[in-house]
Design a protein around this nucleic acid. Structure first.
Lengths: 200, 200, 200, 200
DNA sequence: CATGAATGAGTTTTCATTCAT
DNA sequence: TATGAATGAAAACTCATTCAT
């Protein structure tokens, strides 16, 4: 008995299933059948709704980024000072569900895919820019523009690097330690503006 | 025109071809045929010498890491002060050939593969440990152990993060800028030891 | 034009095709493509339904044995005296469709495969046991247990030996001659119980 | 330092290696490389001497049959009465080295191959005829021609059947029991000539 | 005499995708 | 809306065979 209005339900189920499957296998090399089975539908249905595996993958990445953006927006809205905005951005990046091994593995797979798919690349660049600009919005009031930009670059890289290292599951830093590391970086760099110029 | 003693020649040619192919496609999803063609031999020969695709891939990663290690050893040997050791490690990580888009793409692919292959994971963990300990060897004389460890963690993550961002090819930091970023991080953190304890 | 409920139809078609192909080639070294072509479907479909070549092969042997068993059961049920049971078992073993060159060739191939596949071996041992016990059920009322067992061993071996010789297609014994040979063996051995002990 | 007169040495080594390899794997699906390795030479050399895998296989069967024939000739020569000739033939068929699992497995593989190779078939037919005629030479003096032929057929089939059952390695009859079984068959049939006609 | 080097042809297997129902 | 049926295309891997040395 086909129900009406199933489309959004199925789409979401499939996107969720895709994320779970990719996360648990740590690779985009999952089959449509696996994803569909995980979602409890046939592979043909996944095709019906998304047209192709690539499209389902893109939808999945978009969903992940949308979630992250929503969390970031919420956190930024709640922050009352520039410094608090910075901390909010950092915290969101390491919040439990984003930093879970599955999700980290999925992120990695997406980065890898970005080498081949211009569209995936575009999405990740978007995320990178957003992270950068979110950090910047907190840093700009606190230091000169060039330094703010540099700190934002560094903090963003640090966050991504902690993700990648997390994916190795060896000597993994805890969420707290990760947050501390980035906070310290920002603090250290903000401090420097009053001291000597950068080394090297 | 078969010549004798071709085995090492072919092995190297295949490993090099694999790295090039993986780098240019940004994925381990390259076929043995592609790699073999790139190396100018038949796919059967690649199997003959490496037994399986997986083994050729492992040999490729090992070669990449071996090169990196050799460079690091050379750089560390030449360094005369602890501070110089740190800079040497940083510089090696961003030296032109390692930071080339192809190589960065290959790295990313390897990280992704580590999710599925215990052996690949082991190799990357090894690299991570080595980077960490190389940094530590320069940091230990300069600050208390806990701080040294933390800075090493941060610098390593920063390096990896700059790699990952490089792979997106958007707003890419130059080699120099990348080196500066890490140097500044280390400098900033070493500075902090005289101030208050890390935030949080 | 996909129809529903094709699975059992295809499975049977593939098993039949496998038996025909193996029989006509006299070897398990047939390709999935050949079998699939014979069944009028794609090789991919054969994999879809059986998972692997080995599984299709096993299903084929099982089908052959199941047929044989069904025939034996029917024949045994119809037999009214112990002696008739023995004759029934013998007759079934040489019934036209089992003794056809194709089927004999397939049997041979299966025996050969049993050397490598524990599962195939198990199936053939099962068949051997059944043949033995079917013979025994007729023999037991007619002579002491040890002799019954010996006659069953001999008759079973004789049957198998006639099969193997049949496969050479040289100086082939007819079905009737084969049946007579085994019947005579049984008769001769049953006779002996009243005479001297076995020679040697 | 190539030695002269190596040809017969290598040929024998390869044929022996082939028999061992086929026996241990229970199949003709052994590779030239395996055989060559077992013989301690390169696969190329095997080709050099035999031209093709098929030729090496044929040489191997011929060697096996030649050995069997030599044993039979020796045993027949030693036998002084017709009855003793029969027993000699039986004994040779079950002598330890022929009845070893490896050799039995090889035999089976050859029978299977006979379905595809006319040449292999010819060789096995030859063996079958020889066995038949060897038995006949002992039987002819003891009973009328038609019965002699029938007993020879039966004994030969019994021998082959015991081989095939041996290959299953389940409830295997010992060499002695196998010999007894055939002897009893012959004795029983020779006896019958004085009694009633065959049943059925 | 002997072999390492090399490959073409072939086989199993996987999978995204299509289609009729 | 949903799916079972079906396949073409591609990929890893194997192996007998050839050839130059």
């Amino acid at each position: 008995m086909p129900k009406l209005g199933m489309e959004p339900v199925r789409r979401k189920a499939l996107v969720d299933a895709a994320l779970r499957t990719i996360g648990s296998q740590g690779s985009l090399d999952v089959t449509m059948s696996e994803i569909a089975r995980e979602a409890g539908v046939s592979a043909a249905l996944a095709h019906h709704y998304f047209g192709s595996k690539q499209q389902l993958l893109l939808a999945t990445i978009r969903a992940l980024l949308a979630q992250l953006r929503a969390d970031a927006v919420a956190a930024l809205t709640a922050a009352e000072t520039p410094r608090a905005r910075i901390s909010a951005v950092i915290r969101v990046s390491f919040q439990a569900d984003q930093f879970a091994p599955d999700v980290v593995a999925a992120w990695l797979a997406f980065y890898s895919e970005a080498q081949r798919s211009e569209e995936v690349r575009r999405l990740l660049v978007l995320y990178a820019r957003r992270l950068h600009s979110n950090l910047l919005s907190g840093l700009r009031p606190l230091c000169p523009a060039p330094l703010a930009k540099q700190i934002a670059d560094g903090a963003a890289a640090l966050i991504d690097g902690l993700y990648i290292r997390q994916s190795l599951k060896a000597a993994p830093l805890s969420i707290d330690a990760s947050v501390t590391l980035v906070e310290d970086y920002v603090a250290g760099q903000l401090n420097r503006q009053h001291g000597r110029t950068p080394s090297r």
